[in-house]
Amino acid sequence: MAFFGYNDAKTLVGVDVAIYEYILAHETGVPFMHVRDLAAGAHVSNSSVMRFIRKMGYSSFPEFKVAFHKQSLEASPDLETGVQLLTAETFPSTLQRTLDLVAQTILTANNVVFTGTGSSANVAEYASRLTSTLGINSFPVTDPYYPLIPQLKQTTKNVLITLSVSGQAAEVLGMLRQFQNDPATTLISITGHRDSPIAMISTYALTYHTTEHRIHGHYDLTSQLPAMTIVEALARTIRRQAQLPHH
């Protein structure tokens, strides 16, 4: 995709070329980046990025990101009207490493609870069924006011996995904080925001990038495909680790 009127990268010089080419190669990830992320990816300084942004006519990096994202949608209307396919930019490069650690934790747990509300509740139920098929003692909790503490009171090695796109659901966060300092429970999250409160209190956070879509202020149309992909990748990782010989 050409942008800012540049159809030929040869019109750019110096570090601007590296920045331009990096932006084009990571189009879907740019709206989620900070200046330091773009600078590190293009192997230039933060100040070089900001000089480039100002050359393009923008006074700030957030202003540039909004304009760039809008142009991307206009160039690819199917992102709004059709199926938005997953790309490498949807997930962090460290995802599989974290999946390995989570799978190890689940395989040594006595109880695994998947929780979420709204659309995430459906994914939690699916995740619980999928892991149960692998022989994991797993069950879903889709009511944040469910008396989970009494149920787990006499148990050890519990894993509580929360699904939340925003990572900010107040009622879910309230439930999780009851387990935050519980040595018998490991908190894990699957969320679209790595800096969210739910992710921050989790021992392991499996994160992804997505754009939230709501209509009439609160009806959620955000895709659950990234979360489903992580759930299925987790199931495959558990199955692979369970088949490895123990040393």
Rank of each mutant, 00 (worst) to 15 (best):
A2H: 15
F3S: 03
A9F: 11
A9Y: 14
K10H: 06
T11F: 14
L12H: 11
V13G: 11
G14E: 11
V17R: 07
V17T: 06
I19G: 01
E21F: 10
I23E: 04
L24E: 12
E27I: 09
T28P: 06
V30C: 02
V30S: 04
V30W: 02
M33R: 03
M33N: 04
V35G: 01
A39Q: 10
A40V: 07
A42N: 09
V44E: 04
N46V: 14
S47H: 12
S47C: 09
R51D: 04
F52Y: 09
I53Y: 07
R54M: 03
M56C: 06
S59T: 13
S60F: 04
P62D: 00
F64G: 06
K65Q: 10
K65E: 01
V66N: 14
Q71S: 15
S72I: 15
L73K: 08
S76R: 15
P77D: 00
D78A: 15
E80M: 13
T81H: 13
A88K: 12
A88V: 12
P92S: 01
T94C: 08
L99E: 00
L99P: 03
A103M: 02
A103H: 01
T105C: 03
I106S: 05
T108M: 08
A109E: 01
N110W: 00
S120F: 02
A121G: 07
V123L: 07
A124S: 09
E125F: 10
Y126M: 13
S132I: 05
T133N: 14
T133F: 11
L134Q: 02
G135N: 01
G135W: 00
N137D: 11
P140R: 03
V141I: 10
D143T: 15
Y146Q: 05
L148G: 07
Q151M: 14
Q154P: 01
Q154V: 05
T155I: 01
T156L: 11
V159E: 08
V159M: 02
V159P: 02
V159S: 03
I161M: 10
L163V: 04
S164H: 08
S164K: 08
S166Q: 05
G167W: 01
A169Q: 13
A170P: 10
A170V: 12
G174D: 09
L176N: 11
F179C: 09
F179H: 10
Q180N: 06
N181I: 05
D182Y: 12
P183E: 03
L187G: 01
I188C: 10
D195P: 08
S196K: 09
I198Y: 08
A199K: 10
M200V: 14
S202H: 03
T203H: 11
Y208R: 01
Y208A: 01
H216E: 12
L221I: 06
T222L: 00
S223W: 09
A227R: 03
A227L: 04
T229P: 05
E232Y: 08
R240S: 09
Q241L: 14
Q241Y: 04
A242W: 06
A242Y: 03
Q243F: 06
